[in-house]
């Protein structure tokens, strides 16, 4: 009897483990490649939002990476090849009490790779501010959409802070 209970518990444990792996795989298949790359880093809070709403008419997939403290913020920006002058601008803006938002294009799913001059290259829009130590990676479909998103988020930061 005791042996049967032990076998039952082992069976339930294995079943739970298999079920957890299946759920985790299903979750990861519905998030962005950027999310998958950074989700395991304990120093970062990573989120993926499908169909994030911008204003009344635009929805876009976005991955957000929030750094937990100011010390790690500049380290993270350098790791995605943000220009040192941009980092300096944001630092100065913070000291003066100004609001500062930076934007640039990056190669799709690779926020650390600057685009080349190829016209058919697929791009993401990255947007970040020291105000909340967050980098947004928007999966944009066109430059027009990128402009609308950038305008919206800049105004949002200016109004909020």
């Amino acid at each position: 009897m005791k042996k049967n209970v032990t076998i039952l518990f082992i069976f339930i444990a294995i079943l739970s483990l298999v079920f957890s792996v299946i759920v985790m795989r299903l979750h990861l298949s519905s998030v962005s490649d950027v999310y998958r790359r950074y989700a395991g880093d304990e120093k970062l809070a990573v989120a993926f939002v499908k169909d994030y709403r911008i204003g009344d008419s635009i929805t876009v997939d976005v991955t957000t990476i929030t750094v937990k403290d100011s010390a790690s913020w500049e380290v993270f920006l350098r790791s995605i090849n943000v220009n040192e002058l941009t980092i300096e601008l944001q630092r100065d803006a913070k000291k003066k009490g100004n609001i500062s938002v930076s934007t640039a294009y990056r190669v799709k799913n690779h926020p650390e790779i600057l685009p080349s001059r190829k016209t058919d290259e697929q791009l993401d829009l990255i947007l970040f501010s020291y105000q909340d130590y967050t980098v947004f990676i928007f999966d944009v479909e066109s430059k027009k959409q990128a402009h609308l998103i950038a305008n919206y988020k800049r105004k949002d930061y200016i109004n909020k802070f």
Binding site: N83, L89, G97, N98, R117
Partner: peptide, 10 residues
């Protein structure tokens, strides 16, 4: 292809 920072002085 530029990296652009908008700064607003309230």
């Amino acid at each position: 292809g530029y990296e652009v920072t908008m700064t607003y002085d309230p």
